[in-house]
Nucleic acid binder design. Structure first.
Lengths: 147, 147
DNA sequence: GCCCTCTGGTTGATGTATCAACGGTTGATG
DNA sequence: CATCAACCGTTGATACATCAACCAGAGGGC
């Protein structure tokens, strides 16, 4: 592995671990929501009527089915969502709606602070391109490896 | 949050989840090691005599103490490392040395395939700079938030 | 000396991620 | 129609991450 690849990989790994660690910690501290909670609630809130099928959630978030099932069970126990008609539609509760509103503000502030404000327009564009290329490569290979 | 920040953030998140998911899955499939296992073994192997204090491990990897403790316990049960003199020195076993050798090859191949080969020199340099800047920002703020 | 605090490591509890296995429904093929 | 295959969602088992509580030893200040 050439030196520049190695350096980029190490730097990236460091950013990945620390940046997401920080943002999740701040989110959990100030709202009590985990990253998983946030992703689910965010997706539901974005989806018009705040209700959506399990399948749409799974595809939208690209989660494994068992992961989603476990997560929804825990969130239902905490009163953040309800499942209407077993295995069908997931709906935000009022409590869930409150929480995601607060969490969005907190999350956006953190992203701006540690990410958006640190990078200039060129860097943002470069990172977008880099990410898209890598994801495209992964998607290509998904077929090659039979899945 | 401006559109370019939002786009970059979303693209980055996608890459983060998918890229690390893929690499870890391949690593686990072909060697039976988790990312945590790999990080520990890699660090030990890099450290001259393949033995190092718990403290050096904690600082080098920037892990919480309880995380390291749990992880080392599990790895010792699997015969990958041994703890000599309680709480002091961690040492690679022969089995651990074998495993990390195989895992390194697998890991490097995956990093090259999905990351190094996909990006050109400019992009690698840009990503390194981006990562360093973000990490620097996080480090600044660590003091501000009293830790 | 005595206490106090800080730090290093451990442990238990909880939440999360992944895998394998299961039951149920649906759709195609014979 | 009967069967088979594919997919949905669920569940249990296991590994991992994090938090809080705990114990032990090392200094520092009195």
């Amino acid at each position: 592995m050439t030196a520049d690849v190695s350096a980029a990989w190490q730097a990236y790994q460091r950013m990945r671990v620390q940046l997401n660690g920080r943002i999740n910690r701040e989110l959990t501290r100030s709202t009590g929501l985990s990253e998983a909670d946030f992703d689910i609630l965010f997706f539901l809130e974005q989806s018009g009527e705040s209700s959506v099928t399990s399948l749409a959630l799974r595809c939208g978030l690209e989660w494994e089915k068992s992961r989603l099932s476990h997560q929804l069970r825990r969130m239902e126990q905490r009163g953040l969502v309800v499942k209407e008609a077993p295995g069908a539609v997931i709906r935000l509760t009022d409590r869930g709606r409150e929480q995601i509103a607060a969490a969005r503000a907190c999350h956006e502030a953190a992203v701006r602070r540690y990410f958006g404000d640190v990078l200039n327009a060129e860097q943002l564009a470069a990172l977008t391109a880099i990410s898209d290329q890598v994801v495209a490569r992964l998607t290509e290979d998904r077929h090659a490896t039979r899945r």
